[in-house]
Design a protein around this nucleic acid. Structure first.
Lengths: 196, 196
DNA sequence: CCTACCGATCGGTAGG
DNA sequence: CCTACCGATCGGTAGG
């Protein structure tokens, strides 16, 4: 289960959102009913509405919490004084860690955001597009400095982000390798694939 | 739109399934209603049932058509007399082609199979697992013959398959590069990332 | 292929 | 946090 607002009490709303993340990951947002969720939380469906406004508010909460976490990290990396390939590796490792340790939320944010309603939907899409462009800029930087092979940067971003999403399959695998091993292998394949 | 049963007449059922694939890709299976589908096909909802048995039958049709196509291709590759890395490259290119040219069906098969009902669900899961194991075996083969670096084969498969799924983002991108360019870049990053 | 309609389930509210 | 309940929509059927 993901950690929630460290240093603060865990509210009932936090419990509901965390439970919903697991449910949405398993069944998808649209196929998850508020009665399913209430069952897992251990209350009647109507009682959920004392803590949340609507089903869609839960999805908003999950998607934007995750998105903000990635943006904050990106900003730190961008302002650090290391080479482009090191920046990419740091970001890749962060994505891997997030996918391993905050699996449910990250997965839902990645796969279920389509069910957001406007204005949240367009807001999220813009944020997402901007994030990818900033990753592509780092790769462009690496191409200019001859660290990275001469590839189409947006394509490289796309491959990188989706490769990480593959950890989904790892997560539910019965005979999975160690998390550190997984990370090592991913970095090896992806970073070596980019390097000149 | 995907090609349908070449050399045979396109039936109304084929039209319904192809339309459904586009709808399910866009909104997800659970959030797509039979009334949505009927609208797109141009008939009343009740009329759909003269051609299909149920909503879930459509999903079964999509998922197993796609799965069988990949398995048939894999069997040809397995029995060919080329090196392991060439086998992997051929399979990778096939996945890229399928994702580019049969986008809707392949995407739906990949993302919406969870909504299949048993026994189709477990059947599909088994097929999927077997397919991945056979890909991993080819990679193992390449590691033994020193063509491929010493990585965890299942992890490599997972990265490869999910990287291809990234073509989804490419598909709806406004400023997309040429399909041949995309393929070239993907092969460059992935195959180089695997090679020793 | 349509009109008419079914029982089930959905997200959510009222009132206590 | 519960009981009771709402209107809307769902997948699907009967009958022509």
């Amino acid at each position: 289960m993901a950690k929630i607002k460290s240093g603060q009490n865990v509210t009932k709303k936090d419990t509901i959102v965390a439970t919903a993340a697991a449910l949405f990951r398993e069944k998808g947002y649209a196929a998850s009913s508020m009665r399913d969720l209430a069952d897992k939380v251990g209350v009647e469906a109507a009682s959920l509405y004392n803590h949340i406004k609507s089903k869609s508010e839960i999805l908003q909460d999950i998607c934007f919490t995750v998105a903000n976490r990635f943006i904050n990290h990106l900003e730190k990396v961008e302002s650090s004084n290391v080479s482009a390939i090191e920046k990419i590796e740091t970001i890749l490792r962060f994505h891997i860690h997030q996918m391993i340790h905050n699996y449910e939320e990250v997965y839902v944010s990645d796969r279920e955001w389509k069910h957001l309603e406007d204005p949240y939907l367009s807001n999220f899409q813009t944020t997402r597009r901007t994030y990818r462009k900033r990753l592509a800029s780092i790769i462009e930087e690496g191409i200019k400095s001859k660290e990275i092979k001469n590839i189409d940067a947006p394509t490289a971003v796309l491959i990188m982000l989706h490769a990480v999403a593959g950890i989904e399959s790892w997560h539910r695998s019965t005979q999975k390798i160690d998390a550190d091993e997984l990370e090592k292998n991913m970095v090896l394949i992806m970073v070596e694939g980019l390097k000149k």
